[in-house]
Computed example of a mutant assay.
Amino acid sequence: MAETIIVTGGTGFIGRHAVEDLVARGFKVIVPTSRDITDGVDGATYLTCDLTDAADRDKLIGEANASGLLHIAWRAAVSGLWGAPENIDWLQSSLALGRAFLDAGGQRITLCGSCGEYDWTSGMCIEDQTPLRPNTIYGTAKVSVMHGLSAMCQTAGATLATGRPFFIYGPREHESRLTAYVIQCLMRGEEAACSHGMQLRDYSHVADVGRGMAALAASNLAGEYNIATGEAVRVKDVILEIAKAIGRPELVKLGAREAPAHEPPLIVADMAKTRASGLDWAPRFTLESGVADTIDWFRANA
């Protein structure tokens, strides 16, 4: 019988790709959702559930009878994600979900963390070395979930793994995010007002991130792992690659917006631990192929 895993956030930006990969690996995948599903992943089972409701959580865990939990879901914020107080709501719900899962005999939890958990002072983020010293509510909530569930897993004799994505782009990206904003502006023939773009960031295509989270959930690894490329690219280069692919470079206005004063010049993942771990995963997309794939999706779904 196939091993069963619950994937929260399995209808979302990252989660859909994780569900596809886990189904392909032969897992029985249970996806709790409060949405109407019209384009679900073939082979996955979707159950109506509000993860913030205790009765719904208990019902989900009882019906799923799963040994694994891949927790990607996070409450959508009504304002900017990094500083939104709604992050605390999901901190509480995440701990309650993990506790209920372990109380029911669950054996493995995999968390989707964030590069926002790290202290960005040095720019290079190294698991088990770079301090977890977030300067946002979002990062603080993510770290708190990891610490809380780590203690619960130790008590329950279960394993915990955390994957940390960095900067993500790709199909289904929210229009307020950078690459989606630039793509849609240029497709409409409008100017895209951007900052100077000299910030160095570690960008990953969302399908690579989803596959990485699935691979971590399917493994027996414990601990913290970066799910990224390990390569720093200028934000400007991402923007100009989009402009080149669409053929409207004259519409990009670099320096038209002020870059936030507190933004660090460099944020990049050290990938040595992940690469040495034996994790059955590596990024497939280059910046060029990833941007092309993203543009194709937005054109098809204009």
Score class of each variant (00 low, 15 high):
Thr8Asp: 04
Thr8Phe: 05
Thr8Glu: 03
Gly9Cys: 02
Ala18Glu: 00
Val19His: 04
Arg25Ile: 00
Gly26Trp: 12
Arg35Gln: 12
Gly43Cys: 04
Ala44Phe: 02
Tyr46Asn: 02
Asp58Gly: 14
Lys59His: 05
Gly62Glu: 01
Leu70Tyr: 06
Leu70Lys: 09
Trp74Asp: 06
Val78Ala: 15
Gly80Ser: 10
Leu81Gly: 05
Glu86Tyr: 10
Leu91Pro: 08
Ser93Trp: 04
Phe101Trp: 04
Ala104Ile: 01
Ala104Pro: 08
Ile109Asn: 03
Cys112Val: 12
Ser114Ala: 06
Glu117Ala: 09
Asp119Trp: 13
Thr121Phe: 10
Glu127Gly: 03
Thr130Ser: 12
Thr136Leu: 08
Met146Arg: 14
Met146Val: 09
Gly148His: 15
Gly148Val: 09
Ser150Tyr: 11
Thr155Arg: 14
Gly157Glu: 05
Ala158Arg: 13
Ile168Ala: 05
Pro171Glu: 00
Glu190Pro: 11
Ala192Cys: 12
Cys194Met: 14
Gly197Trp: 12
Leu200Asn: 02
Tyr203Ala: 01
Ser204Gly: 05
Ala207Ile: 01
Ala222Leu: 05
Ala222Tyr: 11
Glu231Arg: 14
Arg234Lys: 15
Ile242Arg: 08
Arg248Thr: 12
Pro249Thr: 02
Glu250Val: 07
Glu250Gly: 10
Arg257Ile: 03
Ala259Gln: 15
Pro260Cys: 06
Ala272Met: 14
Ala276Lys: 12
Asn301Phe: 09
